[in-house]
Nucleic acid binder design. Structure first.
Lengths: 206, 206
DNA sequence: GTTTGAATTAAACGTTTGTTTAATTTTGTG
DNA sequence: CACAAAATTAAACAAACGTTTAATTCAAAC
């Protein structure tokens, strides 16, 4: 599906409303009103509310694998590669946090009508990349073998999401109260915390 | 609010439907039908759909602090205390995973109509308990001082939730396909992973 | 300038939503 | 049994939902 300017505008508006109020908590009338288009345009362009979300996910997620490959091939020792990979993942997820929030939420529902095939396929691809890196590090004797590789994904990604979903709570603990300082916190302190956590977990030294 | 058998039955039914299809994705008619009660009983008992969720949260969350206190006062060195605390948190969250899922989801919405004051107050209390334990360990020279204490909560809790929300995906990686084996996996492998991660992070040795 | 297909509109479609009503039944108490 | 309060019911409420219709405007091609 090729997206024109107007379609992209609608998707941007929808994305933010979905993230604010949930997929079911957002009506197509709200989206149309906020985006200043006629209600019928949403069915006209996307077919349905569900297919609009699919279009949004595709629009946001395409390119992830390509970028990830690039980051993984950067120079550096194994621990530096872990640093790069985590920094990239957090940055990419944070930049796309709105669509990730909706995707996570809808994906975990039982009677969902949204198609998640591509989403899951990408998840598997990304995992394979990470698994390969860690196994190479283990064979080189740099990384500990006493780790559950698949569970490192929930630790990296879950730390970010649980922080972000409870942003207000944690930012109070860090005495950060300006919304514009959150981005900075994510890219510095939160990223450093996750890097430190995973590197210590992978280290052989204790 | 004192809950009779019938109210509790309704809450149990509502909890599972909310977790399956979301709060907005579940209608009071669905709940009433599944619980085999008249629709009007929900307003009669709880006042509204939102207040029913508040009643559910209160019903599920009460007692957490008391149990947490007990676990924290158990015998053992600092690392054993961390083990006990994490095992307790994961067990308690996993047992109440349905209501936590709804609570997390609704809490992160902007225009929510559900009252979360007690929920947040409890979060703060729990954090203070954990912070105190870690600071004591640091002063005793057992724990590293180079950690972001508030961010350890997202790492513990976020790892669990990201695993659970993507349960199917990760259980495939571990070649577990029976639903009844998930509980066991959570209490053994997943708990061990989180304990290992946090203990390594807190260790001084590298 | 006319034709053609896409874009856009206001209005209406039938459902479903959460809540309330008013009547009835059940329950417990004197 | 008689009475009062609580519990339960079927029905109705207005509002909001996602989608479709049919008519109209617009833009590009010939």
């Amino acid at each position: 599906m090729d997206l024109g300017e107007k379609q992209i505008h609608i998707l941007n508006v929808a994305e933010k409303l979905f993230a604010k109020n949930g997929f079911d908590g957002t009506s197509v009338r709200q989206i149309a009103s906020e985006a200043d288009v006629n209600i019928a345009m949403i069915s006209y362009y996307f077919g349905s509310k569900e297919k609009m979300l699919e279009a949004l996910m595709h629009y946001r997620f395409e390119g992830f694998r390509r970028e990830m490959d690039k980051v993984m091939s950067e120079e550096g020792d194994y621990f530096e590669k872990i640093d790069h990979m985590i920094a990239f993942m957090i940055k990419r997820i944070h930049q796309n946090r709105y669509v990730y929030k909706v995707a996570n939420s809808e994906y975990s529902k039982q009677n969902r009508q949204v198609n998640f095939e591509k989403y899951v396929a990408q998840k598997i691809e990304n995992y394979k990349l990470i698994e390969a890196l860690i196994k190479r590090g283990q064979q080189a004797g740099v990384f500990s073998s006493e780790v559950y590789i698949p569970l490192m994904i929930p630790t990296v990604v879950g730390t970010y999401f649980h922080f972000y979903y409870n942003k207000k709570f944690f930012m109070t603990l860090f005495e950060v109260d300006k919304e514009e300082d959150v981005d900075d916190f994510v890219y510095t302190t939160l990223t450093a915390h996750i890097q430190q956590t995973i590197k210590k977990l992978l280290s052989n030294e204790n």
